[in-house]
Design a protein around this nucleic acid. Sequence first.
DNA 1: TAAAATAGTGCAAACGTTATCATAGTTTGG
DNA 2: CCAAACTATGATAACGTTTGCACTATTTTA
Lengths: 329, 329
Amino acid sequence: MAATIKDVAKAANVSPSTVSRVLSDNEKISPETKERVLNIVKELHYHPNITARNLVTKSTRTLGIVVPNEAEDLFKNPFFIQVMTGISKYSQKNGYFIMYTFSKSEEDSLKNIKSYARGKIVDGIILLISRKNDKCIEYLKRINFPFSIVGRPENTKDVIWVDNDNFNAMYNAVDRIVQKGYTDVAFIGGSKEMNMSNDRLDGYKHALKTHGIVADENLIVENPNFSEECGFESMKKILDYRIPSAVVTTDDILAFGALRAMHEILHYTIPIIGFNNTPLASYQNPPLSSIDINSEELGYYAAKLLIEKLENKEMTNTHFIVETNFIER
Amino acid sequence: MAATIKDVAKAANVSPSTVSRVLSDNEKISPETKERVLNIVKELHYHPNITARNLVTKSTRTLGIVVPNEAEDLFKNPFFIQVMTGISKYSQKNGYFIMYTFSKSEEDSLKNIKSYARGKIVDGIILLISRKNDKCIEYLKRINFPFSIVGRPENTKDVIWVDNDNFNAMYNAVDRIVQKGYTDVAFIGGSKEMNMSNDRLDGYKHALKTHGIVADENLIVENPNFSEECGFESMKKILDYRIPSAVVTTDDILAFGALRAMHEILHYTIPIIGFNNTPLASYQNPPLSSIDINSEELGYYAAKLLIEKLENKEMTNTHFIVETNFIER
DNA sequence: TAAAATAGTGCAAACGTTATCATAGTTTGG
DNA sequence: CCAAACTATGATAACGTTTGCACTATTTTA
């Protein structure tokens, strides 16, 4: 049996309170007792029982991550694991543990959130996605449970969120290629369910407008998801209509598909830009230019803002915008 | 404030014990009290405090996953997230929570394991990697803490592990292509630190031997890791020496690099086989044949075996072999 | 019909901490 | 030099459950 605080207290000839104080440091404990206690602690290999501590402090120093089922479509995309890495990095640095759960559906997400929140198993929750009319967000708001979101939610009021500036990221990319002389730019987008899709489309349109170019609706293809197949079909559709001078996409995987369509149909490629800068983007033929969204930072800041809220730090901001970088290849 | 078991008890005019028994079901409680209590539970939105329960039951029904730093090299590879999904699926089904932590190094892993185990924060640990002379394994064995490993450890005595049969997977693949007439097969491998690398190499050698072919050491290139660059360089080296009739690799990413080398140097491709069946394998040009290792199942069974141990089920086996599938494209 | 078994419930201890309050001893202030 | 303030520590009550034991009322057994 592992030693408890009482064992240490007895061996050091002090009360449990004193041991507790020694361990939490910031107390007025005489140097002698401190040393004596610390020696016993070492000797007995004592480590406080976190569960017991959690019970009395009414906090678990644990964050819960809810990974949506959509992630499955995105095994191809390191986005989620990168975000999770970022969350882990900040959390560890600040002594927080992390729990996660994969959810098959929005309902399932909600169920998992409830078990986290109601069982008081975590102090806060990080959502890796925000849907339209998101039930999870609504629930968390209603029960007033701390949470943060990766991705801008529909209604940003009273929520903590972290995202890229998708509008500007796409705006700048399109602006750039138009300036290079590619004025006839096609757009291949993914799921319209997500806010970022619309932001990126808006950025595209606005950039064209700035240059006095009227967007040709036939050059804009949106899809139900971000698969390679969708990218392929979209490009095919576009090529059937006309050969644009360049293509922008809202995801590298879409770009991979589009690239394949060019190879198979055109037998040459036109400039194309991906999004998310998947590690494999650089290995495409030709290497794919892409917009890096710094996924890891998204997670890092989602954890940071949430923890700041949990610790009642005065928050300067209830959201954070992570930079994007245009990677030209 | 959320309702406690005492509130429910008071409202239902019973003792807390009775409420507890109603909630844990399997007790001789009269149908009337049961119904009455259940109603109050619903009315008060009562949910047991898991921390308090954990304290008295001396168990957290939580599994801890230690993700190694190597994962970072493998963002390109959905392996880890797939394993984590598998773990999540089995755990959820059986009412277990999951914690994870990324580790920067073996030392860091050990530190994280200690905080999980000594704080009694998790009931068991799943390691996502096994190194040579693995300090984590050694520690967990020493303190006799339940754990399971994804991947076969050096010493399988007294440990629970789940893995593919890497030897046979590679053996069969090589056997297959040799039978098709490609007798001059090159081999590109990754980190020798990992057992599976050696198993796969052995499988390759043994398959050739079976067909009476003497392995040409110059056609065998091993690398420090599984990067695209390594694949590229290895293929280059092989082509400098001689053009083989086919190539097998121990990872799709290596194959991607090798494929690029063929395109750039040979300007045509020879048959090549990857490993892990990365989602992007099918989008290569030409589509990459690969060996699917069913990563998700690896995680699923790692969780299953560990939980069985935790619940003292009589375990028929202390390890499990997950099937591989040759995906021909 | 008395003794024994059983069904249904309550009491109280335990789990291992932290935190509030009290206290003994020492130092400081006027 | 006595009251006031402070220092270092201990006693004790929580935190919210589960569980072993005890108890009463009922049913079964012989």
